[in-house]
């Protein structure tokens, strides 16, 4: 058995991984919606115009990008916290 797995609660490991899968799934669903669903409905979204931007265009040019950045930081914050909650964080040097 790999050295870092020794002495870890198996149940906690399982919970940690299912938490990760849940978070990953949510992230991917949002990722899918802001790109692919937004492209699919671009002609409809374009009917809404804010500050001169048709919303379908805006999603492709800026909206989806902003969501991507937020998604990654959200994922990393939550996972970094989960590491500690489930006791699998890296050892301090």
């Amino acid at each position: 058995m790999a050295k870092e797995l020794k002495g870890l609660d198996q149940q906690k490991l399982k919970d940690y991984w299912s938490y990760n899968i849940r978070l990953t799934t949510i992230t991917m669903v949002i990722w899918f919606v802001v790109t692919y669903v937004a492209i699919f409905f671009a002609p409809e979204l374009d009917k809404i115009v804010i500050f001169g931007f048709p919303m379908g265009y805006y999603m492709g040019a800026q909206g989806s990008l902003i969501v991507f950045v937020i998604l990654i930081f959200n994922y990393s914050n939550k996972m970094n916290k989960a590491d500690k909650d489930y006791g699998v964080e890296e050892e301090e040097e």
Partner: peptide
């Protein structure tokens, strides 16, 4: 025009995949 935005989304959205599936 609009269709060129495929490059903008494609070359940024890939980082979400990288963040959750591979990087760490």
């Amino acid at each position: 025009g609009y269709d060129g935005l495929a490059y903008i989304m494609g070359w940024t959205g890939g980082y979400v995949l990288l963040a959750v599936f591979l990087g760490p």
